[in-house]
């Protein structure tokens, strides 16, 4: 289990699999099953990038049925506090314990730009909500039937500037009950080391985000269009000079994951549709283990 792995000082490996746009979960389950042997848990994203997909609660539940441990990503963008609590209780009843509490990408990035953004709570308040439910109380102080058990985590952006400003929020997230930070993709091990040392006092486990750069073009796209992600130019040049850029990207992701091993408690692999390459990326980490 993810929590046991992290609590016992083990190195956790998680990966992201995007649930389908539609009700056919065949491919989603196939990809997840293929990863079952090499990861501790699979993150199920929540209408990622504000693009409408199947409910992550449903998708996570399908994973538990398969004996695969999910991390249910839940955002504040599409649910008010009633819906958030209700989905969290639903998750607990379905045997889903790991929650990644997120604010959520803004509606303006996605495929339903005319929708009403909710943001009734923010990520810190969502973590407080999870803590309240775990104590057997809802946000209004009403008693619940049973106390759900959650293992809650939060997002962190080690390369965000100004960093001191993000640090205040990370401290609040830790105080609100975050037990692990899953970081935004980091391409500079030095940044990861600095981040890890800085947040150590919060006593929160750190799972480093590793992003598979499939080509130099993708790396440049990421730098231009994804807020907070910074691919250093030597990495772009390395990709550019390779005969097989995908193979090189896989090698780079493996290297970054292995380096993250030195400073963090786990890695979270974002393979952007090439989940089949995750075992290859992880070979580099396993060599270190």
């Amino acid at each position: 289990m993810l929590q046991q792995k992290l609590d016992s000082g083990g190195f956790a490996i998680t990966a992201e699999v995007c649930p389908p746009k539609g009700s056919d979960c065949g491919e989603f389950l196939e990809k997840s099953r293929a990863l079952q042997g090499c990861v501790d848990a699979i993150n199920v994203t929540d209408n990622q990038g504000a693009n409408m997909r199947i409910s992550p609660l449903a998708a996570a539940s399908l994973l538990t049925r398969e004996g695969i441990e999910p991390i249910f990503q839940i955002t504040c963008r599409d649910r008010n506090r009633l819906a958030l609590q209700s989905d969290l209780l639903g998750a607990a009843a379905l045997g889903i314990r790991n929650i990644l509490a997120l604010t959520g990408d803004h509606i303006s990035f996605g495929d339903h730009q005319n929708a009403k953004p909710v943001f009734d709570l923010d990520s810190v308040q969502l973590l407080q909500t999870i803590a309240a439910l775990s104590e057997g109380k809802d946000l209004s102080g009403n008693a619940l039937q049973g106390k759900p058990s959650f293992y809650a985590g939060a997002a962190a952006a080690p390369e965000a500037e100004p960093f001191p400003l993000t640090l205040y929020k990370l401290e609040k997230k830790a105080a609100a009950g975050a037990r692990f930070f899953q970081t935004q993709a980091v391409f500079d091990p030095e940044k990861l080391r600095f981040f890890s040392e800085t947040v150590r006092p919060f006593n929160v486990k750190i799972i480093a985000g590793i992003f598979l750069l499939k080509s130099a073009g993708m790396a440049r796209y990421v730098n231009r269009h994804i807020p907070g992600l910074k691919v250093p130019s030597p990495l772009i040049e390395e990709l550019e000079g390779a005969a097989d850029q995908l193979a090189k990207g896989t090698e780079i992701a493996g290297r970054l994951a292995a380096q993250a091993r030195l400073h963090c408690d786990g890695v979270h692999i974002m393979a952007m549709g090439r989940e089949d390459l995750i075992p290859e990326i992880l070979k580099a980490v396993k060599r270190e283990l």
Binding site: D122, S123, Y168, P227, G228
Partner: peptide
């Protein structure tokens, strides 16, 4: 947001 910037601050 009431408790600080989101992860999208760049």
């Amino acid at each position: 947001l009431l408790n600080g910037p989101c992860g999208g601050m760049d």
